[in-house]
């Protein structure tokens, strides 16, 4: 009895729905494989040719007037310090990463050595002697150097004066030559129409 009622409701529902539209029927036929909407291989080849032709004949787009000048200004604004900053920040990041990796083993090594030295009186004595002799040698070396410089200044005052002038000057000239001939101008030359 219940089944009869269900069939009746289903028939009523179907009779109230309109017939499928023609394009829906086409789609169904195409899906089933034998319909007229299924593109043949010839149609596919023609479509592919259309696409190829369309793409090949599409024009090149050009930027708005003044674009080149804006780009050149932006490139020129990327000055040497800016480049240097980029590289320095990269180097700094790498150095910090390296320091982070090395810190723990170095710390362990340092603490172990310190513990060994402090726990052994003989080693402590050796360490103190070595430190004292190192400091003594270093101070003697510095003293010799200062004395040598003093004697040079007293005997030939022109030499240190020339050195203090010529070294920064040479550095400045080297940097200027590098800056004028080196990387920052290279791209500008490549980008500019010859």
């Amino acid at each position: 009895m219940g089944n009869d009622q269900g069939n009746h409701a289903h028939q009523m529902s179907e009779s109230l729905q309109p017939d499928p539209a023609e394009h829906e029927m086409e789609a169904v036929r195409a899906r089933l494989g034998g319909g007229s909407a299924a593109p043949s291989s010839e149609q596919r080849v023609r479509q592919a040719e259309k696409v190829e032709n369309l793409l090949r004949t599409s024009p090149f787009e050009t930027p708005s007037p003044g674009f080149a000048a804006r780009v050149m200004a932006a490139v020129a604004a990327m000055t040497f310090p800016h480049m240097l900053n980029r590289r320095l920040s990269l180097s700094l990041a790498l150095a910090l990463a390296l320091a982070a990796v090395l810190t723990l083993p170095l710390l362990v090594l340092g603490v172990t050595t310190l513990f060994q030295v402090l726990s052994d009186p003989a080693a402590l004595h050796n360490f103190a002697t070595m430190a004292a002799s190192t400091i003594g040698s270093a101070s003697a070396l510095v003293g010799d150097y200062v004395a040598g410089v003093e004697s040079l200044v007293n005997e030939m005052p022109m030499v240190p004066a020339l050195l203090t002038t010529s070294i920064p000057l040479a550095m400045l000239i080297t940097w200027t030559v590098w800056y004028l001939l080196g990387g920052p101008r290279w791209l500008l030359q490549r980008l500019t129409v010859a």
Partner: peptide, 30 residues
């Protein structure tokens, strides 16, 4: 500039908007 048209056409075809394409082309040069 020698390559401005080449780079701009590429960025325009990729992004579909002239303003954004010019920004992208400039960024490519930088």
């Amino acid at each position: 500039m020698r390559y401005e048209r080449d780079v701009f056409n590429l960025t325009y075809r990729m992004l579909g908007n002239r303003g954004e394409a010019e920004d992208a082309a400039q960024e490519a040069f930088l």
